[in-house]
Simulated scan of single mutants.
Amino acid sequence: MKILIISCWYPSDEAPSQGMFVHEHAKAMVAAGIEVRVLHFYTYPSRELYRRDVFSEVRDGIMVYHVQVYSRFHKAALLMKNHLGKHLASVMDTILDEFDPDLLHAHVVFQAGIMARRMSRIFEIPYVITEHWSGLDWFSKAVHMPVGQARRAYRNAAGVSSVSEFLAGRMREYMRVEREIEIIPNVVDTELFRPGRADENPDGSKAANGGGINPVRLLCVTSFGKGRKVTKRPELLVGALALMPDDERGNYHITIAGAGDGLEEFQRLVAENNLKGQFDIAGFTPREKLAEMMRHADALVHPTEIETFGVVAAEALCCGLPCVVSNRGALPDLVTHGENGLLVPENTPEAWMEAFRSISGLINISNKRQISQEISKIVSYQAVGSRWKTWFKSLPLSSY
């Protein structure tokens, strides 16, 4: 089987971590014996009026065709479907000279799903849509967005999938998707994200000094945003520690991996609460370094308002790391309270303070190998690739 992935979100030199989860799905398909090419398009802010770069590269053995537009009107350019469609159709001609896909696979309905429908009609190739996006609620209500086109793209696809049942529910609620939605989880590189060895007991449980760990080494992988669409809530960790007596705060040390426009504001908040000794801010962290940090941490803390899957939590679990997460979105599908982590019932400093106080007990009963094995059999390349292959074969492609 041959699949051409179409996505606005995909790693590139401009944005090395953007859409990494789509690239991981491509690698999972390859692991299952599927031939894959990728068509990536995006618009980037620039001082230039308009410039378009079209080029190809091989990334982890997968041929990727990039269509990158640079413009001071980059947001408007992404909405110009006829303009984008002409660019993509031209690149499709080049791709089809050497690759004859059985299926177009769009990741995220806006704009990839909309463009996949257009390419499907031009080149007579069926398409499917996989949804990852947490923004379907505001998108469905935005008068300037092509909501009708997105709904038609879902409706006319050969199949529709989602990375979680939670997100499938939002697709039904906000985008009126009334058809069957296949649930196929995101992927984790389980060779990279795996338990450490030096700090484990022979039975796989966490080594501890005198039955406890002091200070508890916590890791938070987040982004520092601003404005109405902020979803990650690292400031709750500051609020939780600020509520504690001074002698209790010293029991916790939090390393934060992440970047964003709101980083300076977060640093000010830490300083104002006299918590510089409890936080290390590592900034943007490559995946290889992040996996190493997970292997040396005692637990992941992940305050968030929404997760359509929770890749960071899945990666941490693959490392055998218990996860303390907000009881939001799809996270309860990954984290079982009291077993491989804790679900914090409310996003308040008080609720997170109580969660902090339960972490040491959780660490002492956690079996890292067991945590890793249970999640790895669901999210590994082999597991997800097999799911894709089975689903693709079940689709009624002959009717398109």
Rank of each mutant, 00 (worst) to 15 (best):
I181G: 04
A112Y: 10
N364A: 14
L334N: 01
A153V: 01
V384N: 02
G260T: 12
M175D: 06
T285L: 10
P332I: 02
L290A: 15
Q370K: 15
V301P: 04
P101L: 04
G361Q: 09
A207W: 13
H253A: 02
G310N: 08
I363K: 12
H144L: 14
S360C: 02
A76I: 11
R151W: 01
N274K: 13
Q18N: 13
Y127P: 15
V379T: 03
P349V: 06
D60T: 06
R287K: 15
W388D: 00
Y381Q: 00
A355E: 04
V379D: 05
A314Y: 04
N327D: 15
S56G: 03
E272S: 14
D53E: 15
A282G: 07
D97N: 10
I281G: 02
S372Y: 07
R47S: 13
R59Y: 05
S71T: 00
E48K: 14
M119F: 00
E272W: 01
R151Q: 15
R170E: 15
S223T: 15
T348N: 10
L236M: 08
F73C: 00
R59E: 12
W391S: 05
L397H: 06
D189F: 04
L321K: 11
L269Y: 02
K377N: 06
Y70E: 04
I34M: 13
R328K: 14
Y174A: 04
D137I: 13
T285N: 02
Y42V: 03
S372H: 10
D261G: 08
N201C: 07
V344R: 09
V335M: 08
V22Q: 03
M63S: 03
P11G: 05
G385Q: 00
S386G: 14
A158D: 05
L362R: 14
S380M: 12
R228M: 08
R228Y: 09
W352F: 11
M171C: 03
I363S: 06
